[in-house]
Design a protein around this nucleic acid. Structure first.
Lengths: 188, 188
DNA sequence: TTGTATTCTTGATAAATGTCAAGAGCATTG
DNA sequence: CAATGCTCTTGACATTTATCAAGAATACAA
């Protein structure tokens, strides 16, 4: 997915506006296994995934927990760290070779001046992220593990060939063994 | 909690700015049981809870699911409906008599003109809501039911005398029976 | 106050999920 | 190609949670 189409889609912008901001998104290549964001690092960029897959995870006392898997069309960053300059909470690692377009914080700061309605667009963007999480919370309190798996599989079929299932299990809030049994039961 | 102090805290605004917008938040009294937002209604206002408690819930085929309980200091609305003019997804009902301050959509629209930095403030506000949900998702995938209960109890002790436990159970993603057993086990 | 909801608890049992351990399947590397 | 790690699956068993049902406690209304 190219950066201009993606910006146009995410922010619902006309092409001429897109051309104003797209130059600030710089292309980066990430090799499989590389860290987009290491433990405790502050997020200095907001990046759109053009190709490849990333996992967003955190360390607890007892285990590593994958919060989110982001592929083409999604953005990755530690939002609270990026927006509020807090120490990072998430680590982000490339699960495959990947290409991303990164907006660095120094450039990001100038967007308000560059595009008058930038704050409105960004607000809408964050609101959409909020809605995605709201839906996800609702799934946790209203669905069984099997239903959560089926929904996730429906929406992210592409991940299942490329991502270790243990990470997907964590995103769904279950153990790898349980995911494995659900999969053999529903037959996918 | 009065509306000026609340606006100041939520939006991190100096008093003179608060005075510019606070008049647009109109006081409403809600009697216990009344619906702030009924099934399928569009959200036409964003309201801060000054006193009282509300539950935000949705109907599934099989059951009613409480997503959130909002008390003093929180805002209530159906955010996606309010921001994007979509049909409502949530119903919102007063669990006690309550006092709220409502910003109606018609007034809200003028805030950009009234306060130049309004969009920045609103963006930050929504981002904070995002962070709360992000934390909540993480709790679901990383904690046991008992731990989730203990966290929630720690943060919302005040709810437990006023809210039917079945609603809290739903927020925590468990049945009322399980919540009851956890409570008798940990002894609160 | 009394009667009627509703809510909460408790028990018995079933179902779902986690844990631990072993082995099979795959990929990566030398 | 062989050797070494991961990853995934499967089994046995423990733990957690749900379900159904009944009774106790509580709140609400006549």
């Amino acid at each position: 997915m190219n950066i201009e189409a993606q910006l146009q889609q995410v922010f619902d912008l006309p092409p001429q506006q897109v051309r104003k901001i797209s130059p600030y998104f710089v292309e980066e290549q990430m090799a499989k296994g590389m860290f987009f964001l290491g433990q405790g690092q502050r997020a200095d960029r907001l990046s759109f995934v053009a190709s490849g897959l990333f996992r967003v995870f955190a360390q607890t006392e007892s285990k590593e927990v994958t919060q989110w898997i982001g592929g083409s069309g999604y953005f990755i960053t530690d939002l609270s760290s990026f927006l509020f300059d807090q120490p990072g909470r998430w680590q982000i690692q490339a699960l495959t070779d990947a290409k991303i377009f990164s907006l660095y914080k120094d450039d990001y700061k100038h967007f308000e001046a560059l595009i008058p309605e930038w704050n409105v667009l960004e607000k809408r963007f964050i609101a959409k992220c909020f809605m995605i999480l709201e839906k996800r919370v609702f799934d946790f309190i209203s669905l069984s593990a099997e239903e959560r798996y089926l929904h996730y599989f429906e929406q992210h079929k592409a991940y299942f060939n490329q991502v270790p299932l243990q990470y997907i299990a964590s995103v769904l809030g279950m153990t790898p063994e349980t995911l494995s049994r659900i999969r053999s039961k529903v037959g996918s």
